[in-house]
């Protein structure tokens, strides 16, 4: 008999992540790819890579999508569940650490804080106007210092203390960093100083007024950086748990949600891995239906329109997200 797996797809601004989990919610395969501004191609490429990772035949019994391109990727794979990133990340973290009370999630261009009590999300925040406290900030500074981002964490761990660097704004951080270099601070202190700056920025802005209680789970691409983890542990004075699959937690959450959903319904809408070969295309037009002049995105599969979104009224949209939310309320 073939193994039963569940697929989770998380398409964000920077990375596209796919995971397969089994009935015990263990990860059997995972893909972390750059989105590079082409979500459709990224999802299709990742589907192929994921299939190649598997050495035995298997069946996908459910699929969930999340991330900023969740609607789009949901159409591509035929999602059973399309859910927001907050819920997906919380579901994945809670599965691993059921008593978690704080989730720190820092990705390429966004950061989130999720507060949980008794296994329920009670508060959350996402960054809005500035990416100074996210992975892009570190990426940029690492480039400026001429060190690969992969080594950033190890270098930071060598420092005894961090140099004081302004972290509110990337531009000011950079001039501050140059100044510290010129004054003669050792590289590791500057690198760790940057980690502290990011953590300070996160705690003072996003997490302002929120009660950060342990256990704290730290996930998202930036969790790979040991320096940031250390800075969080020093600032919060508690252990910070980084899950094994920290960079694909959103996808794991989506897969778990899909598993729960298909267990109830007993069927999946999964299009199969053939979705990777299908010819999807998108175009947009301005709806002339009223004076709102909404920009509508039209998605075609082999020349046939399969979905619309972007309108303010219900004229074009299937309203999938709202329908799912209502289902949730009614259940």
């Amino acid at each position: 008999m073939k193994d039963n797996f569940y697929l989770g797809v998380d398409v964000g601004s920077v990375s596209t992540n796919l995971v397969l989990i089994d009935e015990e919610k263990r990860v059997v395969a995972s893909i972390y790819e750059r989105t590079r501004g082409e979500p459709i191609a990224a999802v299709q490429r990742s589907l192929i890579l994921l299939k190649e990772q598997m050495d035995r035949p298997f069946r996908v019994s459910g699929v969930g999508t999340t991330g900023s391109a969740r609607t789009l990727s949901g159409v591509i794979v035929g999602a059973d569940v399309v859910r927001n990133e907050i819920t997906s990340h919380a579901v994945a973290a809670l599965d691993l650490v059921p008593e978690a009370r704080t989730i720190i999630e820092i990705g390429g261009q966004d950061s989130k804080i999720i507060i949980l009590r008794e296994g329920v999300v009670v508060d959350f925040a996402m960054n809005t106007v500035c990416a100074a406290g996210t992975g892009s900030f570190l990426d940029h500074q690492a480039q400026r210092l001429g060190i690969p981002i992969e080594e950033f964490g190890d270098i930071a761990m060598k420092a005894e203390k961090g140099a004081q660097i302004a972290g509110r704004c990337t531009v000011f951080a950079e001039s501050d960093m140059i100044h510290k270099q010129q004054v003669g601070y050792p590289l590791e202190e500057i690198v760790y100083g940057l980690c502290e700056a990011l953590v300070r920025n996160y705690l003072n802005n996003l997490a302002k007024g929120k009660d950060i209680l342990p256990p704290v789970v730290f996930q998202g691409g930036v969790a790979a950086n040991k320096g940031i983890r250390r800075a969080f542990e020093e600032a919060l004075k508690c252990e910070v748990i980084v899950p094994d699959y920290f960079n694909v937690m959103g996808a794991i959450g989506a897969a778990i949600l899909a598993k729960e959903k298909t267990k109830r319904t007993g069927k999946t809408n999964f299009k199969g891995f053939e979705a990777a070969e299908m010819n999807f295309s998108t175009s947009s037009f301005i709806c002339q239906g009223c004076s709102n002049n909404c920009e509508i995105v039209k998605m075609k599969l082999e020349g046939e329109t399969v979905a619309h979104w972007g309108g303010r009224c219900g004229r074009w949209e299937i309203g999938e997200v709202e329908r799912i939310a209502k289902e949730q309320v009614l259940s």
Binding site: S68, R83, N84, E85, I86, T87, E118, V120, V121, V122, D123, F124, M126, T128, V129, G310, V321, A325, Q328, V329
Partner: peptide, 30 residues
């Protein structure tokens, strides 16, 4: 928070997450 820079996607995601939060709290009897 709304201004000309606000995108529908960001509002949608937050509303959705808030809806999930409220529903889950209710199920727990909060």
């Amino acid at each position: 928070v709304f201004d000309e820079q606000t995108g529908k996607a960001g509002i949608q995601t937050r509303l959705e997450a808030f809806a999930d939060l409220v529903t889950a709290r209710r199920k727990k009897g909060f």
